[in-house]
Amino acid sequence: MPSRSTTYGTGLRGLSIATLVVIAAALTMVFYYAPLDADQGFIQKIFYIHVPLAIVSLLGFVFGGLMAVGYLLTGDRRWDMRSYVAIHLSLIFGIGALVTGSIWAKASWGHWWVWSEPTLVSFLIVVLLFCTYQPLRFSIEDPERQSRYASVFAIVAGAFVPLNFIAVRLAQQYVHPRVLTLTGGNLPGSMMLTFLVSLIGIAMLFATLWKYEMASKNARSQVRRLRRTLLGDDALAPAGRSAAPS
């Protein structure tokens, strides 16, 4: 076991402040700088929260898969912890993207859910898949095996993300005009700039929360280890069965 200790709290304050500044700037730009969309009008403002949430969530899932590779290569449980936190945050962001997407669909097409928007459909599939991550972890008792199996799942599911988007996108006929593409290729410059600032803001928010949760989990495991060092193995309350890596 490596004796190097990591502190995730380092730089967290600076990152938090920077995130706050960027998100405040993004919101200001969304409502006061970006022009109203010619077709959709004010509704289109949802785009600046929905799409960044979705993109960051998907990247977070892939990031979780990469961290899981780290676990399988090294066997160091901290990689599993990183993967776990990334996936669980991405799931929260993903649910946010689904709900905001649904609101957008209702506002512009009159339905809470539209099957003709392939990005939304593939996103639903990805979120459904990652919803099984916690139950999987929870149903494996041995912590080492839990980490190993969860990592295998995270890798497979991370690779599934892009594949799924290819398959679903091909399966749809485009009934509705596509108001957004993930690359934002058809956006005017000021909208594009606003979008990019929002994207960076949400990505920084993800990084901040990730570091925050890692610091919290790290502190908790330090307390457990301190207890064992000071009071002996017997003093350690048996860790309840948990889905979270410890």
Binding site: S5, R225, L226
Partner: peptide, 12 residues
């Protein structure tokens, strides 16, 4: 001296 415990990583 909590520091002795911080650096140490046993099987959690």
């Amino acid at each position: 001296a909590g520091g002795t415990a911080t650096g140490e990583r046993g099987p959690a």
